[in-house]
Nucleic acid binder design. Structure first.
Lengths: 151, 151
DNA sequence: CATCATGTTACTTGTCTTGTTACGATCCGC
DNA sequence: GCGGATCGTAACAAGACAAGTAACATGATG
């Protein structure tokens, strides 16, 4: 459990949902992601609130993709899941009195801000249908193998 | 303890060490960083192995800066402490069978690699004496206040 | 040799994601 | 309406990792 895998997982799910027309239950999605239904509901809650997916209770319920993959960027998904911390490193103290430490924080912070800006920009420049297209290309390259997880 | 603060702390220490000519004990450094001596020794071990500082046991011992700040980049320090993980996010599975997940990992991985390359490049472009100079500038701007932590 | 200081190991703590259990609410089919 | 399917949510345990802590060995100085 070294990294926060929520972004990766939600991207995975959304693309799969686009391939199936019918709704998917948390149970099915959980099997697909090798996790369990509660985690799925927890993480997908943000996507629902942002209007990317819809959930329906009761018999025949489950999760449905509401917007086309071409309308969703990686950044959209990142924001929908609550913009978790991107970096594992950081300052020891956010508001230090020591001027040396302040200078260190500025230097490190500047570098990290640049990297973060670039990362977010990259996430913003990729829509989910692009990833789906990459997947299709791979599928064509080796059509004999099983192409995906439990789907 | 949300972030790994080792890099930040070591930068802080090295610059302070440059200001004092005499060696500093782990005890003194620990007070400066608001931590304790064992953590200091643990983290500084990497810096010693890479030849940036020297440690001496016994009476009058402690830590000494060996190389000038102008010879040490932020990247050097990052590497010396063991190149800890930079990102808090990552894929759910590094070697997934699912081709969709593979495509997701490639897309996310590409963006992260770019951001990481930029960050490391920025760390490589800054030497510790630059941060020390920033500190001096701040010090001139308000010479009346106490300028640093327990030093 | 007594003291100071590092070196190292083992264990605990704090924090965050993930996993799990439990229970309530809602919807569909009979 | 009843029962089962399914989401919503809260509460709690597990696992990982940095950081904090305690204990003890090692080496250097006077």
């Amino acid at each position: 459990m070294r990294n926060d895998s929520r972004l990766s997982r939600m991207l995975h799910v959304l693309i799969h949902m686009d391939k199936h027309q019918h709704s998917a239950t948390s149970e099915m999605i959980a099997k697909m992601l090798n996790t369990n239904p509660v985690v799925v509901r927890r993480t997908m809650a943000g996507l629902r609130e942002q209007g990317y997916v819809r959930s329906e209770k009761g018999h025949g319920g489950g999760w449905t993709l509401v917007r086309p993959l071409s309308d969703i960027t990686l950044l959209d998904v990142y924001r929908a899941i609550g913009e978790p911390h991107l970096f594992a490193i950081g300052p020891a103290d956010d508001q230090p009195e020591c001027l040396v430490e302040q200078a260190v924080n500025v230097a490190l912070g500047d570098a990290m801000k640049e990297a973060q800006a670039l990362l977010l920009q990259r996430l913003d420049s990729v829509t989910l249908d692009r990833i789906a297209a990459d997947f299709e290309a791979k599928l064509m390259a080796r059509p004999a193998t099983s192409y995906s997880c439990a789907s």
